[in-house]
Nucleic acid binder design. Structure first.
Lengths: 345, 345
DNA sequence: AAATTCTCGGAGAACGTTTTCCGGCGGTAG
DNA sequence: CTACCGCCGGAAAACGTTCTCCGAGAATTT
């Protein structure tokens, strides 16, 4: 049925396969009259080019692999969406791979994708260190852009949000609204987002309180850890809980409410990423919004670019500016709570 | 570099291309000695089969297209994850397409996928009615399994949760915990999930209160609508708000809290789907959990099956049983609130 | 007017597989 | 000893494109 090939069109239009290909692909000028005939025949027969054959011959499949740690991480879906749209707009298809947060699975997925001759890879590494080898190997074969998280220096092009700037926005906001005893709930490990946000906190918090950089707890990027960390940090009665991402913040918020703490009166809570959940939390979460659409656009741009290059040149690292989104969770502090002396239940 | 072809292996192992292909693909028995040599040569040279060439010759790309309305809908990521894993386990790759909740985009994505010669399609239709034509056309070309939502009778195989059973579980639970004046916030339109959940409510709620089926508000599956609908229904002082999905329930919960309503003392709230958000809401949301992993497994199974068939046979429709997850939002009703007379602020 | 370039179209070789067909070789049966 | 039937291996034809040559005629230059 739908098996109309170039040959059929050629036969129907009375010219050669080569000519038909040229007309349809526009690779070379062709006589106006012939072109018309060919196009008419193609239309009439309902010709649809066979991408597989085209890929075999032209050594380009028009697909890019998108490898990510866990699609269920609520930060990723919006990113995936933007990427899918940006790529589709260029006529490329997206091969999706979910790594289950496991570097071994990640390596397997990468080589599966490579075996399928993807033109390029978009990759959010699972782990800065453990992903490195597989990523470097892949980068040697196809254009590869790292997203959101880095993967060691000089491995591949990368585009991410400026985590330090984001954290600085948060701290400036807290300072401006009179918070003086912040603490930090972050993630351990070597993932670049974890490291950058943590050190940005440590560097910036000292301006508020020399002891502040010391008040931090490191776990992972989960709601559960947010809950647990509050139990560790709350006894010190901070007036702000700065979280390394929104999931942690959601957990912290939940636990603080359980403990009867007044947010934001007594203690402010901030997140990072601005996932959909952030606006729904109670109180709504002050957070740092990642410029997801720009991230995707930039990644797509880098991809086209490093395909244009031979393959050489140093790695480009693009950092995009985040935006502070102030919501209820960092609203006005209760005036009485200045020194933590009197606190209403 | 990585351009090792069958020809190279053949040359290195001193036998023909055909033999190498047979050894590596295992399509035909081959002498033990030869096989060993070939395998050794392949190993040594680091041969990786070219999936594109294979696809061209064997007319099977080993890819399936996954088309969904909006990856940002929080119910989908877990489903996508399970599907990706199930498919990858069979050695198939997933081509992802996001439709932006728009039937026209959906049609475009479907034909793009078809042009790329996907072996099959997994599709969550945007709209029961508007998706129909494109879906039927696609189903004529490749095996196609509908997921989560139907698309009119007899169009294609489909696997979904038993929405009626899920709603029945909710109503039974509400009845058992003494709720007598339920209301329903649902979605308008013809999407099968919307229709099935709505009619299941209408049928089941009459047992609690003859007037209950009348208390419903229809909008869409969003948080915003959940908020808005509460303003419509709360004046009638229901003692349970049954929502058609978790997003609506989250919005309803938020608005009810704003209005000072006591959940669950005064009014219970239930959702549907059990998205990650449900456990995080305050109070945690009672909801109906979809058997996502089973859904994915069943879809994968159907896919392999209808590929085995010629293409004929009637459509199979698989309905999986959901599970009620009881959380705080439908806990014990306040004993005093029986007739809505006295209500504590 | 002859020589050169330019334009347009066709024949056919790739691309890397799978698969069909065929031929040789050893064994068993006639 | 000849005929037939495995078995195993090779040659070569697909699969549907793209792209490189080539050649014929028209257009331009010398």
């Amino acid at each position: 049925m739908a098996e109309v090939t170039l040959k059929d069109v050629a036969l129907a239009s009375g010219c050669s396969i080569a000519t038909v290909s040229r007309v349809l692909a526009g690779t070379r000028p062709v006589g106006a009259e012939t072109a018309r005939t060919v196009r008419a025949a193609a239309e009439r027969l309902g010709y649809r080019p066979n991408h597989v054959a085209r890929a075999l011959r032209s050594r380009s499949t028009g697909t890019v692999g998108l490898v990510l740690p866990q699609i269920t991480n609520p930060f990723f879906p919006t990113l995936v969406r933007e990427l899918e749209h940006a790529l589709h707009a260029e006529g490329r298809a997206v091969l999706l791979a979910d790594c289950d947060d496991d570097p071994a699975t990640e390596a397997a997925r990468i080589s599966a994708l490579l075996a399928r001759q993807v033109d390029a890879l978009l990759l959010i590494p699972v782990d800065e260190r453990h992903s490195r080898e597989a990523v470097a190997a892949a980068a040697a074969q196809v254009p590869l852009v790292l997203l959101d998280r880095g993967c060691g220096p000089g491995v591949a092009d990368s585009v991410a949000v400026d985590n330090a700037a984001g954290m600085a926005l948060v701290l400036a906001h807290l300072a401006a609204t009179g918070r003086r005893r912040p603490c930090f709930i972050g993630a351990a490990g070597t993932a670049s987002a974890a490291v950058e946000r943590r050190t940005a906190y440590e560097n910036g918090a000292a301006a508020l309180d020399p002891a502040a950089p010391g008040r931090l707890a490191l776990g992972d990027f989960s709601v559960e850890w947010g809950r647990a960390a509050v139990d560790l940090l709350w006894p010190a009665r901070p007036d702000a809980v700065v979280c390394a991402n929104d999931l942690i913040a959601a957990g912290a918020l939940q636990r603080l409410r359980q403990l009867g703490a007044d947010v934001p009166g007594e203690v402010a809570v901030t997140g990072f990423d601005d996932i959909p959940l952030a606006g729904l939390a109670d109180p709504a979460l002050t957070t740092v919004r990642q410029p997801v659409a720009d991230l995707a656009a930039e990644a797509a741009r880098l991809l086209s670019r490093c395909r244009a290059d031979g393959s050489s040149g140093p790695c480009h690292t693009v950092r995009l500016a985040p935006e502070l989104v102030v919501r209820a969770s960092s609203g006005a502090a209760a005036p009485a709570a200045v020194d933590g002396a009197l606190r209403t239940p």
